[in-house]
Design a protein around this nucleic acid. Structure first.
Lengths: 258, 258
DNA sequence: GCATTATTTAGTAAATTTTACAAAATGAAG
DNA sequence: CTTCATTTTGTAAAATTTACTAAATAATGC
């Protein structure tokens, strides 16, 4: 089956493999060099941007469907993925940007009202965080673009995806205070400055340069290694690593950062 | 259309009015007199207990579907309803308790594999809290029982509802620390003792009798009224009420109880 | 009336945590 | 071997939490 055949099969009979009426959407936040971005895609048949997402295979758990989507768009596997909210307002899919001609040009199929893709869909929102410099954004066959947007320069999004981004960002920031985040975002060994600027970037908030790392160390989350990093004409900072046992415990039990 | 006709219509053509493959389930917590309970139902055709739930009308928002279910089972409207998680594991609906003969006796319809009710379903979990003494549990036509169970004496539940209750309880307790709860659970005017024991019951945890109310007052959440309640041979406690503006602000912005 | 009593409130001191800031340590560069 | 930017430790003040004491109070029973 070539790609075109596969696409036709999906459009006409996708409901055999995927659950109709339910999708997942992913707000993938990208961090690098004190910048915070979000990954958006532009479908070939929709004249507007939206969050990457897709249907759920009948054999998949929700988070696995989200992980598959994240991997397809970024090439990255094993990210911290968190369900944040499910969206189901009756009018959430309203868009005037669907271009029937572009759809036909792409698929060779006229969309009919009885097609399984047309009906009302509830969507489960997940967010993820990654280092965007490690990603290789892939539009895939349905999209013409897949791009990182600065968090402050997000265009108006299709469907209810504006609200999704807002909710995802809110949940992510609340959870930053209650769960350790960084295991997938920082190299195995990193400096206190690295993790400090990671949190400052994600929260868009100043955190005391002296007290913040102290807190992490007091909580037992970080362990000092014997190595140092040479950063030029200054004092070389120690390298730290997460105490995995303590980190996982904090993930399941929660903690309180201030 | 009589009730039986309506039921048949639902089974055979419900997908016209309801969205297939998606449902909501409600963990309705009941509080009264320092007891914490949860409302369970026993379907006529399932030999086990489970959470009340149902399908979503095509015209409804998710929370409206949950509210409709809560009202149908308890008679109470306008409860604080909170989405806590969506469940979609492929094997979540596994049960050996479905009794085909009881189903046929109830509905007069043989369940066929192509029926819209049979296929895999994703369920959006909501929790609610109410004063169970104000409720009038209604089994409805599908269930033979609808009963409050003490939180420590919950039977094993069908499907993945054991996990749902656990998650709902966890979310409820986390949110108790971050949002004010009580507006729907206490009469308009109540004593500091009332709200103190409400929180102790929901959290199953001792809260200092002197410091806890002080915190609520300091946060501006409570306002003292001029009235007092006569409780017998003791000092009469003042009646308080929520400062609605401050309460709503705390609901949207969050707060921190310790 | 008036002492008794159980409970509600207010008060406060100690303990702890957070915050803000100062100063010392460090290591490369000139 | 001094300078410098940055990391790291130290610490004092401020704020909050916690634990406990004591005062206020209102009905009751004598």
């Amino acid at each position: 089956m070539n790609i075109n055949e596969e696409l036709k099969e999906f459009i006409l009979h996708g409901y055999r493999q995927y659950i109709p009426h339910v999708s997942i959407d992913c707000a993938i936040f990208g961090y690098h060099d004190r910048q915070l971005k979000v990954l958006l895609i532009k479908h070939k048949f929709l004249n507007g941007w939206c969050l990457p997402g897709g249907y759920i295979k009948r054999t998949e758990k929700l988070v696995e469907a989200a992980g598959r989507n994240v991997k397809e768009r970024t090439g990255i596997e094993g990210l911290f993925l968190q369900q944040f909210k499910t969206f189901g307002d009756p009018n959430r899919a309203n868009t005037d940007k669907f271009d029937e001609e572009k759809w036909f040009a792409l698929t060779g199929i006229r969309m009919t009202p009885d097609n399984w893709l047309v009906d009302q869909t509830i969507s489960v929102g997940f967010y993820a965080i990654t280092d965007f410099s490690l990603s290789v954004p892939q539009p895939g066959i349905m999209a013409e673009a897949c791009t990182w947007f600065d968090i402050h320069a997000i265009p108006h999004l299709e469907f209810d995806h504006d609200e999704m981004v807002k909710e995802a960002l809110h949940t992510m920031r609340v959870q930053l205070y209650h769960y350790p985040i960084g295991y997938n975002l920082l190299p195995e060994k990193f400096t206190l400055s690295d993790i400090h600027s990671l949190y400052e970037t994600l929260l868009e908030k100043k955190l005391d340069i002296s007290n913040f790392p102290k807190k992490l160390i007091t909580l037992g989350l970080l362990k000092k290694t014997t190595e140092k990093r040479n950063i030029g004409a200054h004092r070389s900072p120690h390298l730290y690593r997460f105490d995995k046992a303590r980190y996982d415990q904090a993930l399941s039990e929660g903690l309180v950062l201030s």
